[in-house]
Design a protein around this nucleic acid. Sequence first.
RNA 1: GGAGAAAUGGCAGAGUGGUCGAAUGCGGCGGUCUUGAAAACCGUUGUCCGUUUACUCGGACCGGGGGUUCGAAUCCCUCUUUCUCCGCCA
Length: 424
Amino acid sequence: MLNIKRIQKDPAEIIKLLKTKNFDAGEIIKQIINCDKKRREILQDTEKKKSELNKLSKEIGNLFREKRIDEANLAKEKTGKLKEDIKKLDKKVVETEKKLNNLLIQVPNIPHESVPFGNSEEDNEKIRSGGEFPELPGNVLPHWELTVKYDIIDFELGNKITGAGFPVYKGKGAKFQRALINFFLDEGLKAGYLEIQPPIVVNEDSGYGTGQLPDKDGQMYYIQTDNLYLIPTAEVPVTNIYRDVILDVDELPVKNIAYTPCFRREAGSYGKDVRGLNRLHQFDKVEIVQIQHPGKSYETLEEMTVHIEGLIQKLELPYRIMRLCGGDISFTSALTYDFEVFAAAQKKWLEVSSVSNFESFQANRLKLRFKEKGSKKTYIAHTLNGSALALPRIFAALIENNQTPEGIVIPKILRPYTGFDIIG
RNA sequence: GGAGAAAUGGCAGAGUGGUCGAAUGCGGCGGUCUUGAAAACCGUUGUCCGUUUACUCGGACCGGGGGUUCGAAUCCCUCUUUCUCCGCCA
């Protein structure tokens, strides 16, 4: 959510900047400014009346103490209309605030100046790439066949016990999965992140805090009896730790890392693009989250990018880093880099990480602030997060790219974690 | 799941209808003293919103929401959470 004061300050500028996201903000910004003006008018009116009532009440109290009962009762009569007015006005204030908030949450975050124009992923900009494309024999198998061949993931069994998109990892497949999680967490700890194990179900407030609600509630699994949601990403519980929090400036940056399962309904869209591990309803992910001083958040974004790139390099996967264009970047992000690895059997680039700077967009809604040294003033912090990394597509690319006639070769860096160097 | 108790500022804890945004202690910050530190002493110390060029002024907040009252931290309703006891349980 953008800050109302920023909108008031230069609405034309905001409308201009949002064009990069292919968002025509003209009408809604106008509505917001009007609504806010109305809100302040009503608020002032209300507070003036409240002030009067407070004054009267004090006088009545004094009169009673001095036993001037008649005068007190006379004064009492004067309060009736005031109270009525205040009640009505209060209601109007709440309504107007709700309306304003409703408008505000419809405006996307302002993109960073480096975000390229564009409509779709075609227009994303390649920042850099690395790794070697593997040289595979002609008869290579895609991962959904490899998993059957070596009996490491059972999609059918997942269908039986839950449904499509809930695979069962078995044997070396399960161990491999666990190795990846531990590797990602350990690398994060080395980079100074604090490990968090958050709940994987969250309440409504948290859903609103990170913006999954009210719009995207259909994308989350919902537990009706308890009014709770299964998390789509660790970003939700971890970021919500800092909801309504005022940090000290020297606590920044806050660096958290969390492994969680993630749940996404993502109804529809079946077919070749989403086969096997390419898209799941339940998957594992290690997420990194940072809270940073506004002046340093872009440095931090670069730092996180380098961290994620390092993970992929250590796994010896061919990769490319894309800067998302205005049409592809998310509603909440100011700047996002996507990391894609090449799965050599599918011959496809798979997105394995997305790292974003949300600037103050998330923090504003969360009321996540920090306090400068020696100052009473609080400022909205900047938040960033990224996957480091999402498991299934890494799993897919690794087994596809490392298949040999003898079996699937485990990358060197993972061998201490798996305890075996080949799946055969 | 059943019975009971509670929720107040960074923490501890007083406050049971008016002068309470809230005593007191601890902590934090500033100062006096000291070569320095400690101790002692003095001062200061929440958040949000509106208003003002600014000094200011006004409003709201004592777990959340609602109510009674001229007036609520205090009374009533409701929800949530915590604690104690019992039951169940990895």
